[in-house]
Design a protein around this nucleic acid. Structure first.
Lengths: 217, 217
DNA sequence: GTCTATAGCTGGATAGAC
DNA sequence: GTCTATCCAGCTATAGAC
């Protein structure tokens, strides 16, 4: 990868963090990258193409950096802790708030939809096996759609990132509350056999009754 | 409220839905509102001011429309169903995807932060009493920070809206999985006294142990 | 591959007629 | 209050020198 191309990819992420999707342009990107504005078009054709490429490359890099940590997660609360660490680190250097900006842009720019969906999927692909592992044998796993849950976690994380940008105190509080939810799930998993059977019975009964609640496969 | 002012407020929401925060301008707003471009500045001074005003007014209107339904919610899954209905209706007419756009814009436009935070708070103020009511007597309520949970729900909803724009199938699946989580919580609430005590004991033990998990008050 | 220069357009914002 | 006209900044994209 040529140096200039990489500088443009990095500069795109920096510019997205500083100016948001509303303030992005070949000029703001080039300024952040420290290169000439015309090189955006020489190397990537259009600004949107560069945005898509930066989204893919940047997310892949970040995901690779956290892959190891995900495999070491041993509980739902540890998963939340990794999410917290990721959030703090990425707020400074990274790619998650960038992903939120690109998701917002993709809502009305169809050409951004595919790259952003793929980038989010990279995170989902990390989260999903962790959940499969953590919830193995849990009553929840018997009725819940784990891939769906992984998607909810990834999407919810993006929503919390955006919320954090306008209300840091509220966002901290929200994360704390989610930790309590994780505690509940873990508590159910740690129940004795009798109570556990009761929960399981209750869950499968409810799941059978409710059509729209069944996981989509 | 003068007719033109209202048309501009409505036109702002339409323009945000059609072009996103990246494509918003006095001209696109005026076109959507069917008025002259200069009137944006006459009535609101700047585009950002108009964005803030539209955010407040539009959200207040939508929240009022759903307030009644929130009071009628009798279970967590009914709350999710209201969220679903809201999502479907707002995707066509509304204000939630607009809120996502404004949140994205607010990340790098400090003047948008206050209005968007207030708008999100309007939704939180609806969700919070519902959760208080639904979780009264639940083991979860004893350790969880309900206001925090309401914030997580609102922020997560925004994240799901953004995700839906790039992967509709994945988003549907995510919502289905959340419904299963609601089933779990309800199942715990419906347990007999013995099993219930076991869960409660397990939860408070874990809650005491984990510093960062305690609700912020 | 990288630069300067520029065409052509869209944007925020204002002046001034009505 | 609303319109036309306009200034000027910033934008995408390309042409052409180096």
């Amino acid at each position: 990868m040529s140096d200039t191309k990489q500088r443009l990819l990095d500069g795109t992420l920096t510019a997205l963090r500083e100016h948001g999707i509303a303030g992005i342009s070949a000029r703001t990107i080039a300024a952040a990258a420290g290169v000439n504005q015309a090189l955006v078009f020489y190397h990537f054709g259009t600004v949107d193409e560069l945005l898509g490429a930066a989204c893919r490359a940047g997310t892949a890099q970040r995901v690779a950096r956290y892959a190891q940590r995900f495999t070491e997660v041993g509980s739902l609360r540890e998963l939340l802790a990794v999410g917290q660490a990721l959030h703090v680190a990425e707020r400074e250097l990274g790619n998650v708030s960038v992903l939120a900006q690109l998701l917002a842009g993709a809502q009305s720019e169809p050409r951004l939809a595919a790259p952003t969906a793929e980038a989010l999927q990279l995170w989902v692909d990390e989260i999903e096996p962790v959940l499969v592992r953590l919830l193995a044998g849990s009553p929840l796993a018997e009725v819940a759609d784990i891939p769906g849950l992984a998607r909810a976690v990834a999407a919810g994380f993006v929503g919390l990132e955006l919320y954090e940008g306008v209300d840091a105190v509220g966002a901290t509080r929200a994360v704390g509350a989610l930790e309590q939810l994780a505690v509940l799930v873990e508590a159910v998993d740690d129940l004795g056999p009798v109570a556990r059977r009761a929960v399981r019975a209750r869950i499968s009964r409810t799941a059978r009754r409710s059509g729209p609640g069944r996981p989509v496969r």
